[in-house]
Write a protein that binds this DNA or RNA. Structure first.
Lengths: 226, 226
DNA sequence: CGCTCTATTGATAAACCTCAAATACAGTGG
DNA sequence: CCACTGTATTTGAGGTTTATCAATAGAGCG
């Protein structure tokens, strides 16, 4: 049932037995669509792996501004860091569609690391890659124009959650203009206009909570060169 | 000589002996001002701790756009992640003033972690905090106006490298308008204008590569409320 | 004192947001 | 099957923010 997790980066270098033991230490949780797994500042559980479905990691400021930090797809990991400082601006993890996760609390993780240091290495690798990713997005947000960023967002979603269809590559979960906006650092209006334009050009086909990328190649070129 | 490092988060939970052993495994390096410690993609060494001075971590895109990801101050850590994908947009670590670092290569780090798993926990904590920080900055960049972001940048620099003087709190290393701009996601022109305005209001005093925050309190209020 | 790097300031323009109003869509209950 | 309701989306007009470009001034160094 959870064989998809075996392939997860977290378990790189572990034997099947060790893997089973680690899984046994965690606990399963089912999430309905749009239910919240954690806010930063919650304490009980610290690490989660998505067994099925997808989480949306977002961050709010008090003026109501939202950014989507990333999506956590099946097999991927996220952590609820309960740092003492910084209670404001929590990170929120919300299920997109029906989602299953397995969670470990901090104590358990520390025990497991002491038992199997490979886990620590895996975690470090994962986390370093995440830093790389968010730094990259930071650069993009800082230096690129809106349309370029929207293109990159679509391509990211396509790569992580794309599904081939007759028309093109469908982003395989309900995604609103506002989602794309929060993921690209712009407004839903700009996203809407941009998708309209690209629709006319034949690059994408989009509808209510639904985006199909019909010409990925051109979109890639656009995202890199303009 | 390196007692300042003992206090570093990296060595939390280690005995003096263990600390000495870890330090002995690394190798020292002296850097002249503005010399480059690494580009991402370099391989030999993977983790560095700043023993003296300061590093500027920045990222470039091919259009020449630059962002400063963060400054690594004395006692802090950084890693040169040589991921296979993504050769473009390297992260560059450059010395600000004369700087000393100690470096460990990946193999050594892995060995040390296997020996002292506490190190892995420390590293994880450090890296998770960094993620938190950059995510926070990402939110700010996405949702706040330029002046607010400039204020936050100054305050960050003040907190990490501020030095009390008669006039106010001096940012204790040479920092250009362009640096502030790259750190805030704007242009040097906007930074210049903003500092001029704030100079007239008595919030800061600034000159060539030199910024003193004369009214930190007001600047904090401004950074949070407008 | 000339050279180079940094900073200032103004004019102009582009990019993008904000707000308002209309329209499309999906589900629900009659 | 249809009307109804609550979202999601589209589109336009207008305004703000901030970048861009150009020209000038200042600071430090040999």
């Amino acid at each position: 049932m959870e064989d998809n997790l075996l392939k997860s980066d977290l378990f790189k270098g572990l034997s099947a037995n060790q893997y089973n033991r680690v899984i046994a230490c965690g606990y399963h949780q089912l999430l309905r669509p749009k239910s919240v797994l954690f806010h930063q500042g919650d304490r009980a559980i610290n690490f989660y792996i998505v067994n099925k479905g997808r989480l949306k990691l977002s961050k709010l400021n008090e003026q109501g501004g939202e950014v989507i930090v990333r999506f956590i797809n099946t097999g991927e990991l996220t952590a609820a860091v309960s740092s003492l400082k910084e209670r404001n601006y929590p990170v929120t993890a919300e299920a997109v569609g029906n989602t299953e996760v397995i969670g470990w609390d901090k104590t358990t993780i520390v025990e497991l690391i002491n038992e199997y240091p490979e886990i620590a290495i895996s975690l470090l690798n994962i986390v370093l890659e995440r830093i790389d990713d968010i730094q990259h997005r930071y650069l993009e947000l800082s230096t690129e124009r809106v349309e370029q960023r929207i293109a990159r967002s679509l391509l990211r979603l396509m790569r992580s959650s794309g599904k081939k269809t007759a028309d093109g590559i469908l982003i395989d979960f309900p995604v609103t203009r506002q989602d794309i906006a929060s993921f690209s650092g712009t407004t839903l209006f700009t996203v809407s206009r941009t998708l309209s334009t690209w629709g006319k050009k034949g690059w994408v086909k989009s509808g209510r909570e639904r985006i199909i990328i019909t010409d990925p190649h051109t979109l890639v070129l656009f995202s890199e060169n303009a």
